[in-house]
Design a protein around this nucleic acid. Structure first.
Lengths: 272, 272
DNA sequence: GTGTAGTTTGAATCCTACG
DNA sequence: GCGTAGGATTCAAACTACA
């Protein structure tokens, strides 16, 4: 198994088990249609945080203020969303499935646009967090969830992969429901630099990605993630013997993803 | 307490604790702006059921095939949604809140449009069903949830009602989260005719509406529901000493709602 | 090593009254 | 409308320190 970091991607490159460094739109364009069995997308949520927020003990909440989460308005966010959704649709095999994760800030935009583009929703899935951040001011319900949409390219896509029996086995013999319970990504799993600073502000928990992979792909399938970040999707895919292609613009994230592979899979033969 | 059924509503009628029979758009137009403290909407979901569905034992699933859930396409559904959302916004007091319930079929349309209209989302709330219908074919995750959106008219609306402490008290002393666990409406609560046929195909569980009322209204507030059906919203409001105004087109539903009031509140002085 | 207490922190659209 | 001062507000998990 060779995992490659590709810095100047050409459309002739072998993209299996690769992390492509570059702008997702530019890089996606170079990939040929109908390439992937499953696509997972964790796009910017466009959080629109209004003010700084302090906990009751006066410590400041480290909110998401990354440049990549800034948009001018919904119209710009929608254009961005439609652009990657169209490209992603082109890259899906006929019966491939798409997963998108989001919060109430953006998921209605995403869901609306993907329906407009002809995607057919199979499920909405609720990631219910066991340890969410409380609502410190007591002015709303604790926001303890994120939403995933699982969809096929169009209404007529049949024979998409759903490992029903395996899901059932992992759920005490009862069919798996669309409410999923996982902790937020923290502890040993969370990538941090030597000062304890988070490498990525929104790293997803590995068990979440593992369930997605195990539910909707077969062994040796090729999984794609256009906003790969620190490549949790790739780790989950590799762990379960699926292949992957990742795109990530920020090389800093990619280098940490490679470290992560080195640490998690001693036996991997890493080439970077 | 007098509960009225109003058949020919004029804008001079007293609308407190009334059920107005008529088309929701026509009737809403007659109501003056800034009338309501909280609005709950359970619109048609536009389910787009493709085929008839049978259980493993070959009995037929009684799906939602009511005329009121039929739309030509998403564009028509969106027009319809935007129309009632605009009217509802006009009827909300400055710091009133709006609740909308839906499923993955329609909630992305609703959420998108209400954001476009300037509503500011406070929470998405997941009603997690303890007893959902299983996925008989084993081709998707069990669809065990519906989604509610809770919003204010615009970003600057402050001092909306949120009974934080009461919610906390009802949740073992911890702040209430956005994942809510209720059974589907069944048993004694479910309205059925003498043949056991459901009166309304999508009657909501009373405890769900009670939580909504208790969380987001004060005593004597005026609650509005433009698609009232069998008036679960009114029952919850009345039970907790809130006032209500309902609109429902189908007089059959309204008459059952009145029976329901008679049965649930012996002491009410019903006038129909 | 083990157990306990204390600390830190997480995709957050997080106040209100008054002048 | 705006600016500002006053005052009320948190849960679970994982980690650290220390006995």
């Amino acid at each position: 198994m060779i995992i490659k970091k590709i810095k100047n991607f050409s459309n002739k490159s072998d993209i299996e088990n690769s992390v492509i460094v570059g702008d997702c739109f530019a890089e996606m364009k170079k990939i040929k249609s109908n390439s992937f069995d499953m696509i997972f997308v964790d796009p910017p949520y466009y959080m629109q945080l209004q003010n700084e927020l302090y906990r009751p003990n006066n410590t400041k909440v480290d909110g998401v203020d990354d440049k990549w989460d800034k948009f001018k308005n919904f119209e710009h966010y929608d254009d961005f969303t439609a652009a990657w959704l169209k490209e992603v649709k082109r890259l899906m095999k006929k019966n491939a499935t798409l997963w998108v994760i989001g919060s109430y800030h953006n998921i209605f935009r995403v869901g609306n646009i993907l329906q407009d583009l002809g995607f057919w929703i199979l499920n909405d899935v609720h990631w219910i967090k066991s340890n969410p951040m409380p609502n410190f001011k007591g002015v709303r319900f604790t926001n303890a969830s994120e939403t995933l949409i699982w969809a096929v390219k169009d209404k007529n896509a049949k024979n998409y992969t759903f490992n029903y029996e395996e899901m059932k086995k992992n759920n005490n013999g009862k069919q798996m429901r669309n409410d999923w319970y996982f902790s937020i990504c923290n502890g040993n799993e969370r990538l941090r630099d030597e000062n304890g600073k988070k490498i990525h502000s929104t790293q997803k928990p590995l068990p979440l990605l593992e369930r997605i992979i195990l539910a909707s792909t077969k062994k040796n399938d090729l999984v794609f993630d256009p906003f790969a970040g620190t490549c949790t999707t790739a780790v989950a895919a590799h762990k379960h013997k699926r292949n992957f292609t990742m795109i990530e613009e920020n090389e800093f994230y990619v280098d940490w993803a490679l470290r992560r592979f080195n640490k998690n899979f001693k036996s991997s033969n890493l080439k970077s």
